[in-house]
Lab assay of single mutants.
Amino acid sequence: TEIRININGVTIHVRDASEELKKLIEHLLRLGADEKEIREVLHRWEK
């Protein structure tokens, strides 16, 4: 699944996002995570 996240005008594009990762990101956004925090989570997730 491919997702695009727009945070304050900055688009983060994620290829091959699992449903689990998608739910995690949606949850973090609801909690008010910023772009830097989302990128950090994505970076750690890929490892």
Rank of each mutant, 00 (worst) to 15 (best):
G32R: 01
E19P: 14
L24D: 04
S18K: 05
D34Y: 04
D16N: 14
K47N: 15
D34V: 07
L29Y: 07
E19V: 11
I7L: 10
V10Q: 08
R39N: 05
I7G: 02
T1R: 08
L42I: 15
R44W: 15
E46H: 12
N6A: 07
V41A: 14
S18C: 01
E46C: 07
E40V: 05
L31M: 15
I25K: 00
E20C: 06
N8G: 10
E20V: 09
E46Y: 15
E19K: 08
L29C: 05
V10L: 08
A33S: 09
H13K: 09
R30W: 13
T11I: 12
E37C: 10
H13G: 05
I25G: 00
L24F: 09
D16R: 07
A33V: 10
H13I: 14
I25Y: 01
E37I: 12
N8I: 03
G32C: 03
K36T: 12
E35S: 08
R15A: 12
I38H: 00
E37D: 08
N8S: 11
L24Y: 11
L29A: 06
G32N: 09
R30L: 13
H43P: 00
N6R: 08
E19F: 09
L42G: 00
D16Y: 08
T11F: 10
L28N: 03
E46A: 05
I3K: 01
K36N: 10
N6M: 09
E40W: 07
E35A: 08
R15V: 12
S18E: 05
K47Q: 15
T11R: 04
L28C: 08
G32H: 05
L21A: 02
A17Q: 04
E19G: 07
G9F: 07
V14S: 01
I7V: 11
L24I: 11
V10E: 09
T11Q: 09
E26H: 11
L31S: 12
L24Q: 13
I3L: 15
V10F: 06
H43V: 13
G32Y: 03
V41G: 02
V14T: 02
E37H: 10
L28T: 04
R4H: 13
E40P: 00
E37K: 13
W45G: 00
V10K: 07
E40T: 06
R44V: 10
H13T: 14
A17C: 08
R39K: 09
V14W: 04
N6D: 11
L31N: 14
H27R: 13
L21K: 01
A17R: 02
R39D: 15
V10W: 02
K36L: 07
E46W: 10
R15G: 05
H43Y: 10
K47V: 15
G32V: 03
T11V: 15
E26N: 11
G32E: 05
R39S: 04
G32L: 02
K23P: 02
I25F: 04
T1L: 14
E35G: 05
H43M: 12
W45L: 03
N8H: 08
R15F: 13
S18D: 13
E26M: 13
L29P: 00
L24S: 05
W45R: 00
A33Q: 04
L21M: 04
R39I: 08
R44Q: 13
R15P: 15
R44N: 15
H27V: 11
E40A: 06
T11K: 06
T11N: 10
